[in-house]
Each structure stands twice: as structure tokens, then as C-alpha cells.
């Protein structure tokens, strides 16, 4: 199975790898997947509370190339978006952008869940009603 150019590009030069300080109230963390399943994604956002805008995003992923590319792409898309805008990111947008084959769709689902998880964590930390939960699947 060959990988798409975009998957290869994100895999070879992943964007926004790293860790944000999860003790800060402005940072939300989403940790999804499980080691037994072969995929674990941790996606973090830092939010400017005055504008509800995501000013930074970082990830670390244990997984295949498509999982790494999906999370790298997600962090790129998140930066500069408001929470409201970020919640509209759909896993199929990631599938389309990266040209993921059907067996790799779960990587994009995981990325969407990680986004929602990070936002939910930020919201609950700050006493804001949680707007979306990661889908159980």
C-alpha cells in the first residue's frame, strides 16, 4: 500500500509535535485511543480566554503514518480557529485532505475525537458547559 504525498509530508515533517503545560487553565488535553489498539493520540490546545481562540496546538501520537499525519494536520487546522469553528472539523475533512484509504479512516476519527476531547477538557477546566464529547465507538 502506497501512502499519499500529503501523508508522507506530514509523517516526515510533522507539524507542532510537543507538549503544552497541562496544569495551565488555558490548556486543554485530549488523549484518545489505546496502546492495545495500536493508536494513541494526545492533542493539546491553548486557548485565549478573551476571544475563545486557539492560539497554539501540539500533538504526540503513537501509531501508524496515517495516524501521525491526521494529528499533525489537525493541529495545523486548529491554530487560529475559535472553539466554535474547531468543533466543526469533521473526520471526513481529514480523510479527504490526506486521501486516506478506507482501512485508515479510523485514524481520522481518532483525530476528530482528540480535538473534541481537548476542547471538552478546556471547557470543563474553566467551568464552561461542554459543547461536544468525543463520540463513543
Amino acid at each position: 500500500m502506497a501512502y499519499s504525498e500529503k501523508v508522507l509530508e506530514h509523517f516526515q515533517h510533522p507539524k507542532n509535535v510537543g507538549t503544552l503545560d497541562k496544569s495551565k487553565s488555558t490548556v486543554g488535553t485530549g488523549l484518545v485511543g489505546a496502546p492495545e489498539c495500536g493508536d494513541v493520540m494526545r492533542l493539546q490546545i491553548e486557548v485565549d480566554p478573551s476571544t475563545q481562540t486557539i492560539i497554539d496546538a501540539k500533538f504526540k501520537t503513537f501509531g501508524c503514518g496515517s495516524a501521525i499525519a491526521s494529528s499533525s494536520l489537525a493541529t495545523e487546522w486548529l491554530k487560529g480557529k475559535t472553539i466554535e469553528q474547531a468543533l466543526t472539523i469533521d473526520n471526513m475533512d481529514i480523510v479527504e485532505e490526506l486521501a486516506l484509504p478506507p482501512v485508515k479512516i479510523h485514524c481520522s476519527v481518532l483525530a476528530e475525537d482528540a480535538i473534541k476531547g481537548a476542547i471538552a477538557d478546556y471547557q470543563s477546566k474553566n467551568g464552561i458547559a461542554v459543547t461536544a464529547m468525543a463520540a463513543a465507538h
Partner: peptide, 16 residues
């Protein structure tokens, strides 16, 4: 491993 969140957790002493 630099990319792996569970490697980072393992290094921090988290019991996975």
C-alpha cells in the same frame, strides 16, 4: 519515540 505520547508518559513514570 519523540513523537509518542506513551513513551513520554512512560518516561515521566506514569503507570500505563
Amino acid at each position: 519515540r519523540d513523537l509518542s505520547p506513551i513513551w513520554e508518559m512512560y518516561k515521566e513514570g506514569v503507570d500505563l
